[in-house]
């Protein structure tokens, strides 16, 4: 009675609901009002044009890192390295935006492309090691994260530093920001990146579902041995998958560099965009559309949580608990599956 498709939709929905429910219980236990808390969360995410803009802005890079991880996952790879790919993409986009002065129609797409290439290059290393030497990509990507963090910090300090801890601003022609959008969302930092994210989701869907390439990638993901037996090159597909996944994460970095900040600052630690992307992909059941929707939810939770302490007095950490519980239930979808199957049995 339950097709897999339906199940893929049900599990995340139940998980979200349970997440909010447990969040409410925790609020009650600690003497806060869940209604006030969630109202503040909602108003802080969609209450007016400004907050809606901020929510969208926060969702853009999350959607792209989500796509990155989902894409790799469909090919049987676990791309923990989105975090590092975000950093190199961000740096590459900002560097290209500062250094060159071109007409916007060329400059902007090229900046994004450069970021994608940088991210792809960063993902190429673990892809190559996995394909040729069988080194597990999780280990390599985690190491690449640290390399990206510290190398980008060094490059910013040594070559691109304007003042304090920030690079020069990118040229206007490479910027994704626009007066129109900023005014429309009453001064928020929203930028045209949401179109990039939607195009990204479309590209992922198209590659995976409509091309031979995508078919091979998915086949490798399902069963590499069977794929090899069927005459597909597992090595080539692993490298391809990592390249494309890295490209998505690199573009996520470009969104921060060309959109939100218009520059890059040195980071003391990780931005968490890549790590949150894992949760986004998981909640989105590793599909393109799912990742975009999950990114919207996470963006809303993150931006909305900023309003919870000042408006309702509820600590913003509570939202992190809600997010953690949602992820927990998605990850343990087995429990939900089991519960549903039990009901099914009883009915018989």
């Amino acid at each position: 009675m339950f097709s897999n498709r339906k199940f893929n939709l049900l599990v995340p929905l139940f998980s979200i609901l349970l997440g909010f429910l447990v969040g409410a219980i925790i609020m009650v236990v600690f003497g806060y009002s869940p209604i006030d808390g969630y109202t503040a969360l909602w108003n802080g995410a969609f209450g007016n044009a400004y907050y809606t803009g901020e929510t969208l802005r926060q969702s853009i890079p999350l959607a792209l890192t989500g796509l990155s991880i989902a894409f790799a996952f469909r090919s049987g790879l676990f791309n923990i390295g989105a975090e590092g790919q975000v950093f190199v993409g961000w740096l590459a986009a900002v560097w290209f935006g500062i250094t060159f002065d071109l007409p916007a129609v060329i400059h902007l797409p090229l900046s994004i492309l450069v970021a994608a290439l940088a991210g792809a290059l960063w993902a190429f290393v673990p892809g190559l090691l996995k394909a040729t030497r069988g080194v597990h990509e999780v280990v390599v990507t985690i190491m690449m994260n640290y390399i990206a963090l510290h190398v980008s910090n060094h490059i910013i300090r040594a070559y691109l530093l304007e003042s304090g801890s920030r690079t020069y601003r990118i040229n206007e022609s490479a910027s994704l920001r626009s007066e129109f959008l900023t005014d429309f969302f009453s001064g928020s930092q929203i930028h045209w990146g949401f179109i990039v994210a939607i195009i990204g989701a479309f590209i992922m869907w198209f590659i995976l579902e409509k091309t031979t390439y995508g078919y091979e990638l998915r086949a490798v993901g399902f069963n590499p041995h069977a794929a090899r037996y069927a005459g597909m090159s597992v090595k080539k597909n692993i490298i391809m998958a990592m390249l494309i996944a890295g490209g998505f994460a690199g573009i996520a970095g470009a969104m921060e560099g060309l959109g939100t900040f218009g520059a890059m600052h040195t980071h003391a630690g990780f931005s968490n965009l890549g790590f949150d992307g894992i949760a986004v992909a998981l909640l989105g059941a590793n599909t393109a559309i799912g990742s975009v929707l999950a990114a919207l939810l996470f963006g809303a939770l993150k931006v909305g949580s900023l309003s919870m302490p000042p408006v309702a007095g509820v600590p913003s950490e509570l939202v992190e608990i809600v997010i953690a519980i949602i992820i927990f239930f998605v990850a343990s979808s087995y429990i939900i599956r089991w519960a549903v199957l039990r009901f099914k049995k009883e009915e018989k």
Binding site: L21, A24, I25, M27, V28, S33, I35, D36, Y38
Partner: peptide, 8 residues
């Protein structure tokens, strides 16, 4: 739950 939260 929300209701009793506010009542408390």
């Amino acid at each position: 739950l929300s209701a009793c939260g506010t009542e408390d």
